[in-house]
Design a binder for these strands. Structure first.
Length: 525
RNA sequence: GGCCCCAUCGUCUAAUGGUUAGGACACCACCCUUUCAAGGUGAGAAUCCCGGUUCGAGUCCGGGUGGGGCUGCCA
C-alpha cells in the first residue's frame, strides 16, 4: 500500500485541521438504542424547489418501514450543490410532508440534518482516507477534464478519471506543495484500488445480489469550489454516523452501488441495506412510450399541484401505498385493516419495474375515501382547501357553513348509497355550485314544458314529505300524459340548469321554498 | 459503445416448480332507478420471443427482443 499524506499536509490540503478523529466521531454518534429489528430510514432530497410525486412515494416507504418496526424516520437535506440552490425549497418539502401527515424524527443527537452544516464530519473522514493513502488531492481543472474526456471518447475508452488518466493520483509531497503554493485549491479524490476485471457483489433488498465490475474511477469525494462532499461521500459519512439501517432511493442509484460498497469497505463500516425503488411513469403523448413522470411535462407529478387541486391526502397515500404493497387494497376492502398504518408490508415485495401513474385509480381511491368521510369531515376538508387555494368567487360557497353542510349532506345518509361523484375538494365545490345563486346558470338549451312547471308550482309545498311530493309529480305526469321522469327532468333542469343531479327532493329541501319557486318561475319565462 | 436493472389482462398486481393463471381499477352488457353517481349481476381481457432443465416452467438456466437507468467537482 502506498503512503498517505502527513498531518500537516492534510491540514493544508483541506484548508483546516480536521475537527474530529474517527474514534471521536464514533463516540459522538453512537449506535442507536432501539428495539431489535427497528429500521432507521431517511428521506434525503436535494432542495430543488419542487416536491415530486416520486419523492412522496419514497417518503411513504421510508416512513412506513420505520413506523412498522418502531424505528426512526429522518429528513436530511442534501444541499451540497451550491450552484443549484433554490429559495424556500426546503420549506416546500417540509410543508408537503406536513400536508400529508408524514412526520419525521430528527433527533438532534445525530444532526445536523443539513449536509451543508456537516463539513467538519466529511473533512474528518476525508482526512482519515488521505492519511491512509486512499484519497488524494487532485488539481485537475474543468478544462483539463474536458480535454481528457474528449481524448477518451475519440479513442473509444470509457470516460472518467481513472488509472493512467488520473494525472494527480500519485503526486509527490513536494508536487502537492508546489500546487498549493501556487494558490490552487484541490478536490479530494478517491484513490481507487478497484480492478474492473474483478467483480463485486452488492445487495439490494428486492433484487438480491447484483454483480458489477469493481469500480476503478477516482471519484470526487470533496469538491474544490466549496469544500462540500459529493453525494457519494456524503451518503457514506451520513448514513454511517446517522446509523441508517435501510437506504431507500431511486433506481438511478443502482449503478453507483459498487462505488458505495467500495467506500464502506475502505472505512471498515457495514453498508446499510439498500432498497432501490422503480420510477413512477407515464405514457408520453408524443412518442407513445413509457417514461418517468417529469416535473416539466407532467403537472400531476408536482405534489403542490395535487394539493392545490384538492386531492384527499389520504387517498393519494393509499394509492401510492397500494403500489408499494399490493395486498393493501384487498385487506382494506375486506376490512382487515383500517388504514395504511395498520398494514404491515415486506420490503421484498416493493415492485422492481416502473409503475404507470394511473389517474383513474387515484380517482377511485379518492371517491372511496370521500364516501367514507362523515359530513363534518367532508365540510372541514372542503373549507380548509377553499381557504387556502380558492379564489374569492369560489370562497362564497364557504361563507354560510350551515348551507354548505346541508348541500354536502345530500345522499349521504344511507351507508349503502353514498354518492361517489366527489373526487377532489376543488371539483366537489364546482360539482355543487348550482346551489348558490351566484353560480347558478339557467339552462337555455332545454325545452321546458311551461304547463308542467306551472302545474308543479300550483301544488308545491316545501313541507311535503318525500312520498307526498312524489305523488304530486306522478299526478302531474298522468294529467299531461307524459312519463314521471319527464316531469322530474323539467323540474331538475329548472332548478339546477343540469340534466344530471342527485335526488330532487333533497335538492329542494336544501335550496328552500323561495329559491325553488324563483328558479321554476325563471324557467317558465 | 460499455455496465446495470426490468418484462403476467388496457393499468396496478397475485400465484412454496403442480390453480381453470386470481384480484382491483378501467372498459362493455344487463338489472335497479325521477336523471347522474352509487349499488347488484355478468362478459371480454395477460404470462414478450426462442431454446434448455424437469414427469411438470409465469416461476429455474441460456440467448434474443423491447423498455429504463448510469457512464458529471448534479443529486
Amino acid at each position: 500500500m502506498r503512503d498517505g499524506l502527513k498531518p500537516e499536509l492534510i491540514e493544508r490540503v483541506l484548508g483546516a485541521k480536521p475537527k474530529y478523529t474517527l474514534p471521536e466521531l464514533e463516540e459522538k454518534f453512537p449506535p442507536r438504542d432501539l428495539p431489535a429489528g427497528a429500521f432507521v430510514t431517511r428521506f434525503a432530497p436535494s432542495p430543488t424547489g419542487f416536491m415530486h410525486i416520486g419523492g412522496l412515494y419514497q417518503v411513504l416507504i421510508n416512513s412506513k418501514l420505520a413506523q412498522q418496526t418502531n424505528g426512526v424516520f429522518m429528513l436530511r437535506i442534501e444541499d451540497t450543490d451550491t450552484k443549484r440552490e433554490v429559495k424556500d425549497a426546503v420549506q416546500i418539502i417540509i410543508d408537503s410532508l406536513k400536508s400529508f401527515g408524514l412526520s419525521y424524527n430528527n433527533d438532534e443527537k445525530y444532526g445536523p440534518y443539513y449536509q451543508s452544516q456537516r463539513k467538519d464530519i466529511y473533512h474528518s473522514v476525508a482526512a482519515d482516507l488521505l492519511a491512509r493513502g486512499l484519497a488524494y488531492p487532485c488539481f485537475l481543472t474543468a478544462a483539463d477534464m474536458e480535454r481528457i474526456r474528449a481524448e477518451q471518447s475519440a479513442a473509444g475508452f470509457p470516460t472518467g478519471i481513472y488509472g493512467e488518466f488520473a494525472r494527480d493520483r500519485d503526486l509527490t509531497e513536494s508536487e502537492i506543495i508546489a500546487h498549493l503554493d501556487n494558490g490552487e485549491v484541490p478536490s479530494i479524490r478517491l484513490y481507487s484500488n478497484g480492478n474492473p476485471e474483478r467483480r463485486i457483489f452488492c445487495k439490494d433488498a428486492v433484487r438480491g445480489s447484483i454483480g458489477f465490475p469493481e469500480n476503478n474511477e477516482d471519484l470526487v469525494l470533496i469538491k474544490s469550489n466549496d469544500g462540500l462532499p459529493t453525494y457519494h461521500f456524503a451518503h457514506l459519512c451520513d448514513d454511517h454516523f446517522m446509523r441508517t439501517t435501510h437506504v431507500v432511493r431511486g433506481a438511478e442509484w443502482l449503478s453507483s452501488l459498487p462505488l458505495h460498497y467500495q467506500l464502506f469497505q475502505m472505512m471498515g463500516w457495514t453498508p446499510p441495506m439498500y432498497i432501490h425503488t422503480s420510477t413512477l411513469d407515464t405514457i408520453d403523448k408524443d412518442t407513445g412510450k413509457q417514461r418517468k413522470l417529469s416535473k416539466r411535462h407532467d403537472p400531476e407529478s408536482n405534489v403542490a399541484n395535487l394539493l392545490a387541486d384538492g386531492w384527499p391526502v389520504m387517498a393519494v397515500l393509499e394509492y401510492l401505498f397500494n403500489i408499494i404493497a399490493s395486498g393493501y387494497e384487498e385487506a382494506k376492502l375486506k376490512g382487515a385493516v383500517k388504514s395504511i398504518w395498520d398494514y404491515e408490508f415486506r420490503p421484498k415485495k416493493i415492485p422492481m419495474s416502473g409503475a404507470l401513474f394511473d389517474m383513474k385509480k387515484l380517482e377511485w381511491w379518492a371517491k372511496e375515501n370521500i364516501a367514507q368521510m362523515s359530513v363534518d369531515e367532508l365540510v372541514a376538508n372542503v373549507v380548509a382547501w377553499a381557504q387556502k387555494y380558492a379564489d374569492s368567487m369560489r370562497k362564497e360557497q364557504i361563507s354560510d357553513l350551515q348551507y354548505l353542510r346541508n348541500v354536502l349532506s345530500i345522499e349521504r345518509d344511507n351507508p349503502k348509497r353514498i354518492r361517489k361523484d366527489f373526487i377532489t375538494w376543488r371539483q366537489t365545490l364546482s360539482e355543487v355550485e348550482y346551489f348558490w345563486d351566484k353560480f347558478f346558470v339557467p339552462n337555455r338549451e332545454y325545452e321546458f314544458n311551461a304547463d308542467v312547471l306551472n302545474a308543479f308550482l300550483s301544488t308545491f309545498n316545501i313541507a311535503d314529505d318525500k312520498d307526498t311530493w312524489w305523488n304530486k309529480i306522478v299526478e302531474i305526469a298522468n294529467r299531461f300524459g307524459i312519463k314521471n321522469g319527464d316531469v322530474a327532468m323539467n323540474l331538475r333542469v329548472a332548478l339546477t340548469g343540469r340534466t344530471n343531479t342527485p335526488d330532487l327532493y333533497s335538492i329542494m329541501q336544501v335550496m328552500g321554498k323561495d329559491r325553488v319557486i324563483e328558479r321554476v318561475q325563471g324557467a317558465i319565462k
